[in-house]
Amino acid sequence: MPTAMTILGVRVAIFLNDHRPAHVHLIGQGHEAVLDLHCPSGPPSLRENYGFSRSDLRRLMTAVAPSVAILCAKWRKVHGPY
């Protein structure tokens, strides 16, 4: 699972054997969340959360939002069209 970027100390990963729609996994602090990217321009939305607090998720989603186009391009490179 390649790390696409790190935001606020949390890995933003795109799994190599994953499925559509385009999404990323936020992994860190012993927690994981999945954000649908809504390519190509977002905004990302929460699909699943395993342990992040609401305030942490809000901060992470705000931090990920400006990078949606970059993450969509990385998704497309790994998985093809979203």
Rank of each mutant, 00 (worst) to 15 (best):
H25R: 06
P40G: 11
W75Q: 07
H25W: 02
W75V: 02
M5N: 10
H19N: 05
A4L: 07
I27Q: 12
V78S: 03
S53Y: 02
R59A: 14
F15L: 08
A65M: 09
D56H: 10
R76V: 00
S55L: 11
A63L: 05
S45Q: 13
L71I: 03
V64R: 10
L37S: 07
R54A: 15
R58Y: 02
G30Q: 10
Y82S: 14
M5G: 10
Y50W: 12
G42I: 07
P2F: 01
V78H: 01
S55P: 10
P43K: 09
P21I: 03
A73C: 03
A13N: 09
S55K: 15
E32F: 02
S41H: 11
Q29Y: 05
A33G: 08
S67A: 13
G30N: 13
M61L: 15
V68I: 13
P66Q: 15
R20Q: 11
A73Q: 12
S45F: 03
C72R: 03
L35P: 02
H25Y: 04
S41L: 06
A4N: 06
C72S: 08
R20G: 04
H31F: 06
L57K: 12
S41P: 01
D36T: 08
F15Q: 06
E32S: 12
V64H: 05
L26T: 05
A63F: 02
R76D: 00
F52A: 08
A33S: 10
M61I: 09
V78P: 00
Q29V: 01
H31L: 04
T3D: 11
A63M: 03
L71D: 05
C39V: 01
T62F: 07
R54E: 15
V12A: 15
I7N: 12
G51S: 12
P40E: 09
H31R: 12
L37M: 11
L16K: 02
K74T: 05
V78D: 03
Y82P: 02
S53V: 04
I7K: 14
D18N: 03
V68E: 10
I27L: 14
G28W: 01
L46Y: 05
G30R: 11
G42P: 01
H23F: 09
E48V: 08
P66R: 12
M61H: 04
R76W: 00
L71F: 03
G51F: 08
S53C: 08
L46E: 11
L35W: 02
P43V: 09
L37Q: 08
V64L: 11
G9T: 02
V64F: 04
M1S: 15
A33M: 08
G42Q: 10
A22T: 01
M5A: 14
G42S: 10
L8S: 14
E32W: 06
H31P: 01
V64G: 13
N17T: 05
S45D: 14
C39W: 01
I27E: 15
H79D: 04
M61A: 12
V10E: 09
P81N: 14
S53Q: 10
